[in-house]
Computed example of a mutant assay.
Amino acid sequence: MSRNETDTAQSGGVVASHEDGGVSSVGRRAFFSGAAALGSLSLFSSAQAAGSSPSVVQAPGTTGLLDPVTRYPAPPFPQQPQKWPGLQSEMTPRPDCGEEHYQGSGRLAGRKALITGGDSGIGRAVAIAYAREGADVAISYLPQEESDAREVAALIQKAGRKAVLLPGDIRKESICQKIVHKAVLELDGLDILVNNAGRQRYCEDILELTTEEFDWTLKTNIYALFWLVKAAVPHMPKGSAIINTASRNAYQPNPILVDYAMTKAGIANMTHSLARQFLPRGIRVNAVAPGPFWTPLQVCGAQPQSVVQHFGDETPYHRPGQPVEIAPVYVTLASQESSYVTGQVWGITGGDGVPG
């Protein structure tokens, strides 16, 4: 399934909900306004923390501009196989999800978001960004990812927002329904749904792709999105946003990712259809199509280890993206600034222009 901050404030806190329906407290505490929209987000370099030396360019009226090519770690990376679903905390280098450097500006103040796969990678970066932009956040994840999820909850809480933890396998419709129900209950509403959780596992020969593996990918990537949207939409008021996660593979399918690429093309297609269907309800639907991003998905069977070692080297950047670099797009698509944006698939693929 998936490969998914903050002093205790008035409404801050973490709530953990479990598949059996129990809820236990574990502590208190636009599209293209273009560069201007994204420019309102302050992202500071994590290059030193990652062990690299950023190129700093000083120009009149600027302070500490960073070369985007050398800002984050580049391959070669060490081989680091993990068992599915993988943990971010065990990766080298550890993905940068904005834990130390993302600064919000209130763009999502008072919003209530559910993010699947929010424990690590892109989902984690989006959860951190949403909290620092003022939203309360519920994240779903697999029970095996509990340690990563609790790190995210602490970061959300540190940002002064409420965190809700929702472990469960979204390959089951009943679990998807429970996740949405508990998110609505604990957040006292829902107006952002981010369908980010995904399964990717390579297979070099379709004759070796089992029905079980094929079904696993479709249930995680397509069925769960269908079930979550059906459960969430009746609770979402006008002005809400749904953001799906497609992939570069929807447009440039990798021959060893037949089932994964097919589901990501389906997600892009569903995004276009649902956007038109839900606009009369006042709900916008968009998608983000990432290229190569450094997340736990990559080290637990999504790619051969030989590919992991050189992951992202084929892009014009000659490195993978870090989750913190894509989070601002999810912020923009969720914000009211993007009120005229629906049915779009926004490609963040490291310079290859797909989708254009």
Rank of each mutant, 00 (worst) to 15 (best):
G12A: 15
V15S: 08
A16R: 15
E19N: 03
S24M: 11
L38W: 14
S45R: 01
G51Q: 00
S55A: 00
V57Y: 06
G61L: 07
T63V: 12
T63E: 11
V69C: 05
T70R: 14
P78C: 04
G86P: 05
Q88Y: 12
M91A: 07
G104C: 01
G106I: 14
L108T: 09
G110L: 00
G110N: 02
G110Y: 02
G110V: 02
T116A: 06
G123P: 10
D136S: 12
I139P: 08
Y141T: 02
Y141L: 06
Q144T: 12
V152R: 13
V164K: 11
I170R: 13
E173H: 04
Q177H: 05
K178C: 13
D191S: 03
L193P: 12
N195A: 06
N196K: 10
D205H: 03
E208R: 07
W216R: 15
T217F: 00
K219N: 15
T220D: 00
W227D: 08
A231G: 05
M236C: 02
G239V: 04
N249I: 00
N249R: 11
P253G: 01
P253E: 00
N254Q: 03
D259Y: 00
H272F: 12
H272N: 08
R284L: 06
A287R: 01
V288I: 09
P290Q: 04
G291K: 04
G301A: 08
P304M: 08
V307E: 13
F311C: 06
G312R: 13
E314Q: 13
H318A: 07
H318G: 07
R319W: 04
I326K: 05
A327N: 05
V329E: 00
T332W: 02
L333M: 08
Q344Y: 10
D352H: 10
P355K: 01
